[in-house]
Amino acid sequence: MSGRARPEPGFSPERLAFFTDAIFAIAMTLLAVELERPNDRELASAHALGNFLVDQRGSYLAFALAFILLWSVWRRHHKLMDRIGELSKAFTAWHAPLLLLVAFLPFPTALIGASISNPLAQTLFAGTMAAMVFCEAVIKEIASSTGLVTGDPAKTHRHAGSSWAVGLWFVLSAGVAWLFSDAFVLWFVAPLAATYGGALLSRLRTSPAGHLDPHDGDAPRT
């Protein structure tokens, strides 16, 4: 890559990666800032503090869940950016909605922390996560289809399928939330949607009309 021309201003992969890292770090920190602090009365005794902590258990669950989800999205983006040799306008532009949703996530997280069984709160959180992961999928599709990634673009294409599957899983959970108050438990098994749903989508996309793609056997087993 030493012979690659210097990127034009505004299209440096390193600067985009650094800025994205900063937004994720701020959003993950704000998740903790949103947690309610005990007042003087609740700090007066161990019993009062214990009652406060029990009452806030939904907030702690929401914080842990959102932190893990943001971490997983950031980690996947980190791996992608390590394979990006150059940027395109579309690849860069799609980071705007992605980072907007990342920065917004602390708000629906606070809502489900206050009332995790509320269907509208669950819908807002799941919708935000679905939109975020869909943006991630589009970014991967652009990277794999326009030659921005180094190495095998088919690998990034398969990873995009996993992101689409996770996004659809969150959309499904948003609908289920209006039928069952505990629909949020579906979020904890989103990795299964990435593994199995992503593999299914990749197979469907590479095998039109039910015929196996000659390279399908090269895909790693999940």
Rank of each mutant, 00 (worst) to 15 (best):
A190I: 13
T195Q: 06
A27V: 14
V54H: 02
H95A: 01
P108D: 06
G198N: 04
L65I: 13
T123R: 06
A165S: 14
S117N: 11
A165G: 08
V149Y: 00
L69Y: 09
A177K: 02
H157F: 15
V138A: 03
R205S: 12
A121W: 10
G58P: 00
V166N: 01
T156S: 07
I116T: 01
L201P: 06
A130L: 03
R83T: 02
R57P: 00
I68E: 06
A114E: 09
I84M: 10
K79M: 09
S59F: 06
E14S: 12
A130W: 09
D182K: 08
W94K: 02
F52I: 14
W164H: 13
A131T: 11
G151H: 07
W178T: 03
D21S: 08
I26D: 07
T109R: 05
D182E: 12
R6M: 11
S72N: 13
F18T: 10
A25Q: 06
A177M: 05
A110W: 09
T92S: 14
S173H: 07
H215D: 15
I23W: 04
A93S: 11
V133S: 05
R221K: 10
A121R: 03
H159K: 06
L16M: 13
A199G: 07
I23K: 01
G10R: 04
S12P: 02
T20L: 05
E14R: 12
S181C: 00
P106T: 13
V176T: 05
V149W: 00
E141W: 07
D40N: 07
V171S: 04
S202K: 00
F188S: 04
L168D: 04
L148K: 02
